[in-house]
Design a protein around this nucleic acid. Sequence first.
DNA 1: TTTGATAAGTAACATTTGTTACAGACTGCC
DNA 2: GGCAGTCTGTAACAAATGTTACTTATCAAA
Lengths: 209, 209
Amino acid sequence: MQESLKSILSEAGIEDELIQEIQNVGFPKTARSGELIITPGSTSMHMPIVLEGLLSVVRQDEDANEILLYYLEGGETCAMSLACCIEGKRNDFKVTAEDESVLWMIPMNYLDGWIQKYKSFRKYIFSSYQVRFDELLETIDSITFLKLQDRLYKFLLDKKEATRSYEVNMSHQEIANQMNTSRVVISRLLKQLEREGKIEQHRNRIEIL
Amino acid sequence: MQESLKSILSEAGIEDELIQEIQNVGFPKTARSGELIITPGSTSMHMPIVLEGLLSVVRQDEDANEILLYYLEGGETCAMSLACCIEGKRNDFKVTAEDESVLWMIPMNYLDGWIQKYKSFRKYIFSSYQVRFDELLETIDSITFLKLQDRLYKFLLDKKEATRSYEVNMSHQEIANQMNTSRVVISRLLKQLEREGKIEQHRNRIEIL
DNA sequence: TTTGATAAGTAACATTTGTTACAGACTGCC
DNA sequence: GGCAGTCTGTAACAAATGTTACTTATCAAA
């Protein structure tokens, strides 16, 4: 685990000295598949870096309708929780482990110092922000400009990228939830995609062709 | 103009020393109402701070369909252009002056140094990021969870907040463009809002009651 | 005042998406 | 095998949004 932290940070251009510090002051946190990691309304005092596994970041409204914003994969961090913390703001999204996952938790109070001291860390933080930003924009694009059928196909392709697998292990109901629509609609559209030869369906599993 | 810059930065908690620097290395830029300030695909070497007026930030797809992301008002900055610059990435949105506006342009190469040196500047930058992020999330909320009628009403209220005026000076067509729908639909829904007593319509102008 | 251009109103219809209701299929467990 | 629970397929219908076509209103310039 220390090893994967080291290689991830080193990959990101962080110098050994800082990696050492991050190892010293942080601690690991594991999450089982399906486990809720951040709930709306909570405040956290740690910035998580994903070492292994996959997290989904989901937005909810008052009626518990949901929409998937993006995934956090190995090496990525939830920069939002940073500003969230700096400003003492509450989280307004929900983060769930999609897989068995391992996070490295860094206490917030170190961050400002590191940002001041290490150019590489500044770069890492700003780059995460930018990546998240771009993902949000892509999400907006999908919702705004695509028909449901295309959005659904993109959803499947994104999931495939995130999990590095052509198999999507979700029920129609779960997909419907993450896309803020209904199960029947998803069934209809998946059937359509199947007829077009883009996917193959099984129970609780979709194969992307 | 120097005065409004000073008061804005001082309001944001920036110390006099840095304000002085920002004044020294930056320069003003004025934009007429309707003028295009940032076009998709361009790269800019400056971070703009809005001194006066109002900018709209709009996302476009390949077919030139558009959707309004948010407004930038006095005192706010386009933090995105920051990371955009750090990473040498291209802008993928369009920024337009909604009003006669004045910006203060800061050359990018100073930013990293200031972030390192001034805690207040770090705070300013991160806070802008956070504000933008929140606005994007709100935009996603509207698109995802609201019916068009409610989204339209919210659109008008947002515009009212941004311009500090109960009069929205836009044609139905312009509103339709910014909401990525058609003029006829907007006319229909505005009529509905008028019947509900929420607005009053005139040519090129909507009064919010 | 006429004219041309733009803006807004409206009806009729098409398409997309959402809902309800029910049937059949699969899975795990007894 | 039988049963209970979950998942998927499908039809019929409802609601929301998009499109087309045309009319009327408003404004400003000639």
